[in-house]
Design a protein around this nucleic acid. Structure first.
Length: 160
DNA sequence: GCCAACGTTGGC
DNA sequence: GCCAACGTTGGC
């Protein structure tokens, strides 16, 4: 089982939207490196949900991969923002996954916090100028993120 | 195949 | 809103 981090702009699609829908197709990825990671995903892999391009960027929750190698339908829809006229049904260029809601953390693990805790080699999202929206997270790093999430929850509940 | 121009991402 | 990073496009 592997761990991942996936970015989304909360104005477009947030952890609250995923909680409401429970399962969602992760569409619109049009970067080959990100797509290659999507292709590597397996059912039951876990992915951190990261809010980007927002007031308080950071990890806000957890999701699970529920279906893999899904052809992204938006590539064939000329009305869609993610339409790719160079992709053909016989050989679709863009595959993605369906994700399932697992949890929302009681507090956002902010980018600022992540930068304090992890080196750019450990967690790519803290790399300066990083634009990749889907990336792997090593197990040991994932475990440390889980520990931080747990500590935040305890902090919150004990301060009430 | 090189590289300048351009567009997008995303933190701040 | 600014701008650094960086992927993509297109002329040559």
């Amino acid at each position: 089982m592997r761990y991942w981090l996936m970015k989304s702009e909360p104005d477009v699609f947030s952890i609250d939207d995923l909680r409401r829908n429970q399962v969602e197709l992760w569409d619109g990825i049009r970067n080959y490196q990100a797509r290659n990671f999507l292709r590597e995903m397996e059912v039951d892999d876990l992915a951190f949900f990261y809010h980007s391009n927002t007031q308080l960027p950071g990890i806000v929750g957890l999701m699970k991969i529920v279906e893999t190698n899904v052809v992204d339908p938006t590539q064939f829809d000329s009305e869609n923002k993610y339409y790719d006229p160079k992709s053909f049904a016989e050989a679709p260029r863009w595959q993605t996954v369906k994700v399932g809601y697992v949890a929302t953390y009681s507090d956002c693990i902010t980018l600022e916090r992540l930068k304090q805790l992890f080196t750019p080699d450990e967690l790519w999202v803290v790399r300066r100028g990083n634009r990749l929206s889907v990336m792997p997270v090593e197990s040991a790093v994932a475990e440390r993120i889980f520990a931080v999430a747990k500590a935040l929850t305890l902090e919150t509940s004990s301060s009430v």
